[in-house]
Design a binder for these strands. Structure first.
Lengths: 223, 223
DNA sequence: CGTTGGAATGTAACATTGTCACGGAATTGC
DNA sequence: GCAATTCCGTGACAATGTTACATTCCAACG
């Protein structure tokens, strides 16, 4: 059977540090999964399937309040690995994260038991996991900085520019509500600020769409 | 020479997983330090002395904005270890943390190089470091939840009760400004809310002091 | 002792952001 | 075409943050 273009071997950075039996065990345990956009891959602490290794597509990790407010913590792209879908693997993790597919996504699932065995026996895997967690930690600290120290106009401008980079286009197809969920604010606040951006000529709004007209002016808003 | 009551052996949980040469190397590298209340042990990314292992006293980790706003991320007590004073050890850490002594504190300093050698060679140490990072990550996620989803009265009530637990007293000796720095808000906001608490009979205020009068009423504010 | 300087607190006015309650417009599914 | 749903616009108000001071308390000093 033909290997897919992005094999486990190519995606998992510490593969080269593993010995033959470890490689065999991981290959045996790993499975592939393809999910359509919108799929909730992880809801809070509910399940603990294993680590997700993104082969293609895009995931979004976020937290959710009792009242339904949400904020995006970080996003995962090709080659990124999602630790928190396996939070039961690490006893000290005491919070609930949600993960959804932002695009149709193909991913490897590495079961907790197999990965845990690797971590216990291989310092390389344990240290890689460490770096991975530190990387997500850094993402969340960046977000903390944004939430605490930046104003909404700055944060919205940052988001629009970032998003246009991800999509590779000056026109974003996204609703105000989705933006609000990314930023952890209310839809009305986004609408209000976008309207101001439009009045200033920085964007052109349409239903479900935002065209960036003046990147320089938007960038100037970023503190 | 007499060992201090809290030896490295007693404080470092994975000591028992180390072999003799590892123990010897760590003992040789570790130094002790005693710092008075108010000492800044770590400022941003400036230095990278090593891991702090608290023997006695109390530390506070926080972030600081350009404009001088700050918020407490978590606190460290006896037996806790501070990873981020050694952030250079983990390449993926991309944020700046400040650490100050909230009380006179006695701590061990484990130099980065020695600890890194341990992590590379011992899965136990690497996995312990993992748990440690996950634990701090959880602290920060709790804070994120507070900042995003809770109101100020709830957060202040939570802080007062928590603080009285730490101090073991119903009377706190702390200024409004220090509380504001813990909560990541402005001094005036704390003053305003405390005045409300006092009007409701929940606390009695004095210069530099807050007496908790009605814990039940305070607890009821916590969402 | 009185004085004085700094730290801590009080407070009013205003700006920004979040919440609530709508209504209207655009799109989708019959 | 029509109904239902999604998305957006908007005004009023609440909560929190900011600015700019005034006032009070305390400790140190002469």
């Amino acid at each position: 059977m033909a290997q897919p273009s992005n094999s486990l071997e190519a995606l998992f950075p510490v593969w080269k540090e593993l010995d033959d039996s470890q490689r065999a065990a991981l290959s045996r345990a790993a499975t592939q999964r393809t999910v359509p956009e919108g799929t909730i891959l992880q809801n809070g602490s509910a399940d603990c399937v294993g680590l997700f290794l993104v082969e293609s597509g895009q995931l979004r990790a976020y937290i959710l309040s009792d009242e339904g407010k949400e904020i995006t913590l970080y996003r995962l792209f090709e080659r990124d690995m999602c630790l928190f879908s396996a939070s039961c693997m690490i006893a000290s993790i005491q919070f609930d994260i949600w993960v959804e597919a932002e695009k149709d996504t193909r991913l490897w699932v590495l079961p907790v038991s197999a990965y845990q065995t690797l971590m216990k026996s291989s310092p390389a895997v344990a240290n890689y996991t460490n770096e991975l967690m530190a990387s997500r930690f850094s993402d969340v600290m960046w977000l903390m900085d944004q939430v605490l120290f930046k104003s909404i106009d700055s944060r919205l401008a940052t988001f629009l520019i970032e998003e246009s980079g991800i999509e590779g286009s000056d026109t974003l197809h996204i609703t105000h509500e989705r933006i609000a969920h990314h930023l952890g604010t209310a839809r009305e606040v986004v609408t209000r600020m976008l309207k101001y951006f439009q009045d200033e000529g920085m964007v052109r709004l349409s239903r479900g769409g935002i065209a960036l007209l003046e990147r320089k002016k938007l960038s100037a808003l970023i503190q």
